[in-house]
Design a binder for these strands. Structure first.
Lengths: 261, 261
DNA sequence: CTTTATGAAACAAACGATTGACTTACCACA
DNA sequence: TGTGGTAAGTCAATCGTTTGTTTCATAAAG
């Protein structure tokens, strides 16, 4: 039997890439561009240079392929940020990790996210699916979130928590992490608007550099204040107010829609 | 003949809302939830309690309805931010507008965007369409961008430019505006992830307040430095470097995809 | 009597999925 | 070293359904 996991030789003599991989590649591209419903099985089969029946054969159907694509995204993203994340996780286990080191690691991680994910053609394909899943989650959102979003967030949360003063509210720290992530995300999500306003053709290296500088500057503004132990948070109602522990209280009963609409 | 633009009395005796309006309302809801391709004309007709043929009759087809929905969004958004925007535009015409006043106006505008747009059920419906249009623009993106995104951006740019020191690069100012807008946008775009991480049920008033505090804090961090005329921008290549005027150089030849895929 | 509006039925096209015949690769057994 | 059987994979054709749109009859209003 022809193996499912190696390249093989067709009767015409080609050494073709597996249909499986070609379908995932096509799905990555088309689902990212046009959303799940915007893509037909025939489009997928044609782009993958594969027979229509192959989708059912390998993935059980269109939805199965979609979930396989989500898995693939997790693998790919993990391949990119995995080492960086492991480095942070290792550092976070040390008790000796101080504020300056944490801030340095955080900067490094964020710069890494900017330079490696912004403007890279491959990662752009992932983003369409990721963003759409955030807007209206399907089964695939679980895959993405638990696959790399949660680990990434935890690393960011962990570093941020070590930067700010001990009294800080846990929720406030997370919100600041989201804020800084938002500064990066907007360049992913709104490239159309940004390019229009700045007369950019795309995210050229010098443009990326400008983005990186601005975000890194803002990062200092967001977290630097606590580097010298001051606490200059403005007009907040009660600072470091008591909050229920996240694990016990009101654990959200999630309901990810089972059916892809 | 029954007018096209006022409520009328059906043969059953109801004073029904116009089919036109009901279709736009349904389109707003469904397109926002499921994207253009994720919605069928039959879903639209049923939700609007309207005959299937009414879509063609009033809008020429599904795509026409979609564009009408985009127009409707522009109207609605403009109704909300219009007065605020007019206030800013008026202030920007004054030569006497100084940094502090500009910063105050900017804060006010951003706080307005947070409190009026985040977590409001109505505005949530707009967002699905807006974000999807940014990811893969169709004809509707032009409507949205020129309708309210460009004016809003210009107001923000104008205020920001008056806050920073005169030597600042125009592009840098805009990037900082995008950054702060990203801090707001992420709470629109990634509610699923944010709620998961913070164990929030939704954007309750106290949660919104926490978000507002954090973003306003960061706004200070981003622009405050220039309020006291310092220029503490880190390791940037050449500050206030010469740039080509936006109007003459490399005016981007935009190509918004004409066909909705 | 024309215009505007609504409705049920039907249209061709495209949809996701399945069928059944076919080829290929592998292996047990002669 | 052949050989037949079995499973894996490919393919064109076709399934029943849903898609967006159209048709045509009818009703109401000017």
């Amino acid at each position: 039997m022809p193996s499912r996991s190696v390249a093989y030789r067709t009767k015409k003599g080609w050494t073709a890439v597996e249909p499986r991989k070609r379908l995932i590649e096509a799905g990555l591209d088309l689902f990212g561009k046009y959303s799940f419903d915007g893509v037909s099985t025939r489009m997928l089969a044609e782009q993958a240079q594969v027979n229509l029946a192959a989708i059912t054969y390998y993935f059980g159907g269109k939805e199965g392929l979609y979930l396989a694509v989500a898995d693939h995204i997790v693998e790919q993203v993990d391949g990119v940020i995995g080492p960086q994340l492991a480095k942070v996780q290792k550092a976070l286990k040390k008790k000796t990790l101080d504020k300056e080191q944490s801030f340095s690691l955080l900067s490094e991680l964020l710069e890494f996210l900017i330079t490696r994910f912004l403007g890279a053609p491959q990662t752009d394909k992932w983003l369409g699916i990721i963003v759409r899943e955030q807007l209206s989650p399907t089964k695939a959102f679980d895959v993405l979130f638990e696959g790399f979003m949660r680990p990434l967030e935890n690393a960011l949360f962990g570093l941020a928590a070590r930067i700010v003063a001990p009294g800080w509210d846990d929720q406030d720290v997370k919100l600041r992490v989201f804020a800084i992530m938002g500064e990066i995300q907007i360049f992913h999500i709104s490239p159309s608007a940004i390019k229009r306003s700045l007369n950019w053709e795309g995210y050229e290296p010098e443009n990326l550099d400008a983005i990186r500088r601005v975000i890194m500057d803002n990062l200092k503004g967001i977290f630097t204040m606590s580097l010298n132990d001051s606490y200059p948070v403005s007009d907040r109602g009660g600072r470091a107010e008591k909050r229920l522990p996240a694990d016990t209280a009101s654990r959200r009963k999630r309901e990810v829609s089972d059916a892809i609409p």
